[in-house]
Nucleic acid binder design. Structure first.
Lengths: 105, 105
DNA sequence: CACATGTGCAACCAAGGGGTTGCTCCCGAC
DNA sequence: GTCGGGAGCAACCCCTTGGTTGCACATGTG
């Protein structure tokens, strides 16, 4: 998969309110799908689908613990996405500065 | 719109390869829809749709210049998204550190 | 004015995505 | 062994979305 497609997958995974809520919850503590259902008003299967999307994007990792599956955050991808966004913003700022320099000369 | 829905909208806007390419292009220079068609292999109308999505998320701003419409990057939203991702990652690290402290005591 | 070029709008299509229900399967507890 | 709760699979539904084509509108230029 191309690098841009990979990035798009990560952002697309972040592009759903319920998935953001799940991520937020996982920031505080790992949890299973059924545990997450409590504060989401959707079915366990829907939660499971969201978790598979997050896992597919590398944002989350599943670990079997007895009869339940515990999901944990994987900050590496989160950081990569953040860094890319920073690069975009910084690149823009630099371009603006260059334009300003030209205008002043 | 709730804050989480807003964030989701921004990330969803970032969640498409063609839109990422558009953003990347706009990082280097502002451009019109027809100008962007050149390196995207899709129709101008499709590009226009993408631009409206990006504009809706506040990532881009349109400015009429004569008979063409020039689109410019708006780094504020990009930075906000980056900061939120940083917070998620940092929150996770802090939690990990806390767990480690407990384990060591 | 006439013409070309860049936009805008609308209808339409195929595919994907979020969500549900219903069932089976697995595993720990008793 | 049996039972209950968590997880997995599959089918289905509806709405959104990325993309197209076709046309009308506006605006700078000859």
């Amino acid at each position: 998969m191309s690098v841009v497609a990979e990035r798009a997958e990560v952002f697309a995974a972040l592009g759903d309110p319920n998935r953001l809520r799940i991520l937020d919850h996982l920031t505080r503590a790992p949890a299973s799908a059924t545990a997450l259902v409590e504060d989401l008003e959707i079915t366990r299967q829907a939660v499971a689908k969201h978790l598979r999307v997050l896992e597919g994007a590398g944002l989350v990792e599943a670990a079997r613990a007895g009869r339940e599956v515990r999901f944990e955050l994987r900050p590496a991808q989160v950081e990569r996405a953040a860094r890319w966004l920073d690069d975009v913003a910084v690149g823009w700022e630099r371009r603006l500065a260059a334009v300003k320099r030209v205008a002043e000369s």
